[in-house]
Write a protein that binds this DNA or RNA. Structure first.
Length: 281
DNA sequence: TCCCAGGGTAGTC
DNA sequence: GACTACCATGGG
């Protein structure tokens, strides 16, 4: 077991976890239990300092993206000519884009299409319990995210019984393509973001938006800008945007925010959803 | 009852 | 290329 601390005004654990990029974590006394692929860690924040307990320090240093300069990213957004970008980057100052498991991101965001975050979490949780390897970390039992090889042994009805709905057939197809090595997620690192997305979109159930999310959260391609229904709403309401084609909206944001696009997207997404929650409470 | 959710596919033109 | 019906499920 290893414990390490990271001190930064640009790391807020709760905001990083709640901003919609990760689906497997839960609150424990005073902190969080976080899962990624096969691994787990515990993380606690007090003030500017986050304490992380894990069995694989190198993995979680990379997972939390601790070697990147987030001051530069946040400053870029704070200097934006758009009021909404300033506000959202102030609220989300401590958001970091996690470096998550590529397979897990691919399957998670296939599930995400036309779905709701609490329901996505529930489906993933049921999938891990049904198929994932049972593990114990620091006294906590958990189930790893199942490999494509294991997912590929299941039929469509199995996924439907877990609540996948019409996405069940995508899971069957994609898991079998990966398990049979017809599609290899580990050979895509050297591709440009454009070519990476082209490869991802070739998979059944993966369109532009899902590919953007996998590129951003699995490959850390910050020159990605996923446009979902929330971002579409922001584009219309807060940027007075007139485009209707989602691919053109993505391109417009990429033109505005360049290599910082992915970070700004998360600031905006979190801000808009936080407002909605606040209004409901 | 209709509308919405971190949308995508397949068919049509 | 753009447009559209349809796709499961659950919450509001």
């Amino acid at each position: 077991m290893e414990t390490f601390e990271y001190k930064s005004e640009y790391f807020n654990l709760k905001d990083t976890l709640d901003c919609g990029q990760i689906f497997r974590y839960k609150s424990i006394n005073g902190g969080f239990l976080i899962f990624s692929g096969d691994f787990a860690c515990k993380a606690y924040q007090s003030g500017d300092t986050v304490k992380i307990i894990c069995e694989n320090k190198a993995y979680f240093e990379n997972f939390f993206d601790l070697k990147r300069n987030y001051r530069e990213i946040n400053d870029f957004a704070l200097l934006s000519k758009y009021e909404i970008v300033k506000k959202s980057s102030t609220l989300g100052k401590g958001i970091r884009i996690l470096n998550q498991n590529k397979e897990e991101m691919l399957f998670s965001f296939i599930i995400s299409q036309n779905n709701m975050i609490p329901r996505i979490k529930a489906i993933i949780e049921r999938t891990c319990i049904a198929l994932g390897e049972k593990k114990v970390f620091d006294g906590e039992e958990y189930y790893a995210f199942p490999s494509a090889k294991v997912l590929a042994t299941c039929d469509e009805q199995f996924f439907k019984d877990l609540g996948y709905g019409y996405r069940a057939k995508f899971m069957v197809e994609v898991s079998r393509q990966i398990a049979s090595n017809k599609f290899n997620l580990r050979c895509l690192d050297d591709l440009s973001t454009k070519d990476l997305k082209k490869q991802l979109v070739s998979l059944k159930g993966v369109g532009e938006k899902v590919a953007d999310c996998v590129a951003l959260f699995g490959f850390h391609r910050a020159d990605s800008f996923p446009v979902d229904t929330w971002i579409e709403k922001i584009y219309k309401e807060d940027f007075n945007g007139k485009l209707t084609d989602k691919k053109k909206i993505t391109d417009w944001f990429l033109g505005e925010f360049k290599e910082f696009s992915g970070y700004v997207q998360q600031y905006l997404f979190y801000y808009k959803r936080s407002l909605e929650k606040y209004e409901k409470d």
